[in-house]
């Protein structure tokens, strides 16, 4: 079994800071009225995306394909931040 490599605390801290910054951008730009008008399953998926940026899990949560969910993100004004 190969030895598991360790990632420095500094690198992890930087990742977590970026995550927070990207989350803030998604929260600020999102159209919360639009999100609030969606059926519960879709609303939960959009909120999950705002928090995590994880499009695959979000699209499955919404019961939509990746492309359909990407289109929904545009309508909800939630940007992809990478």
């Amino acid at each position: 079994m190969p030895e598991r490599e360790e990632v420095s605390e500094e690198a992890i801290r930087r990742v977590l800071e970026e995550e927070e910054e990207f989350r803030r951008i998604r929260r600020e730009r999102a159209d919360w009225d639009f999100i609030g008008r969606q059926p519960p399953r879709v609303r939960a998926a959009l909120e999950y995306y705002v928090e995590t940026g994880d499009i695959r899990t979000s699209s499955r949560m919404a019961g939509l394909s990746l492309c359909e969910f990407r289109s929904l993100l545009r309508r909800a004004r939630i940007p992809v931040v990478t």
Partner: peptide, 10 residues
């Protein structure tokens, strides 16, 4: 690109 795709670059 940001406008066309609803993307935001850091």
């Amino acid at each position: 690109y940001e406008v066309d795709t609803s993307h935001v670059f850091p």
